[in-house]
Design a protein around this nucleic acid. Structure first.
Lengths: 139, 139
DNA sequence: ATCCTTGCAAATGATTTGCAAGAGT
DNA sequence: ACTCTTGCAAATCATTTGCAAGGAT
């Protein structure tokens, strides 16, 4: 997604398209998910004057406007991701990498509706596994 | 579960069975899941000298020893629960109540193995719904 | 008796806030 | 021009740590 598209998305959400916000979205997009500290470090290279308070404020408002989602995993710091395609998270317990697995959301909701009898609005699913890389590098 | 049983569990984990620890487990058990601040408030009624640092230290060590699990839900503070029967969390988006739904873990793992092709060690599943109470109290 | 745990206070870390200057529409 | 956003510094809130005294085995 190019800057213009991100800019457009911001304006549609009623937010001004500042370089800071575009860059936040851009980095989140490139990383899939990214933590605040990492975001701050990377943004400093491009906007050296950036303040971490600005990042906090923007992540908050971007989440309120529905552009970004916070990902909470026990014993991890919060990560942030674009609210695009529905997916679940796969966490490697060895190397602590987090990756996305895209899903058919309706399908999953149906499965859980079936199981629990609740109409599910939203799901948050994390699978803890050992990733391929770690399996291979095992002695 | 009675105090003696909790005390036994602590000793089995190689921890001393102090009143503070027993009370922490007792409250977590009674609440299903409880946050640190609430735990602190409730414990003060029974052990007025309790320090919140003690609660932090103990939750940490209880988690390390596998007696307790931290539950992370976006925009919630961490909750803690006993590591007993496998279950998933159902969160009402209206009243923000959190409840447990007990599952057949093998079954769920099979479902996701089937879907993702990963051998799943552990799952963390949160379903966001509107609970019965909230549905009823809707105008 | 020994070692672990507690409670306190201080230290650290994370997040939020107020405000004046600057940038986007 | 007007309003929203930024960056800074300070304030607040959450979590961790060191240490001396007390408690569990």
């Amino acid at each position: 997604m190019k800057k213009e598209e991100l800019s457009k998305r911001l304006k549609e959400a009623g937010l001004k398209a500042t370089p800071q916000r575009i860059l936040i979205l851009d980095f989140i997009m490139k990383h899939g998910h990214i933590g605040i500290e990492t975001l701050y470090e990377k943004m400093k290279d491009i906007i050296p004057s950036i303040s971490i308070a600005t990042i906090y404020k923007n992540l908050k408002i971007l989440e309120e406007k529905g552009l970004v989602r916070e990902v909470s995993i026990s014993s991890f710091k919060s990560l942030y991701e674009l609210k695009n395609l529905p997916h679940i998270h796969i966490v490697c317990e060895k190397c602590r990498s987090v990756s996305d697995f895209f899903i058919n959301e309706a399908e999953i909701k149906k499965y859980f509706k079936n199981l629990t009898n609740f109409d599910v609005n939203k799901v948050s699913i994390i699978l803890f596994v050992e990733c391929e890389k770690c399996k291979v590098s095992e002695s």
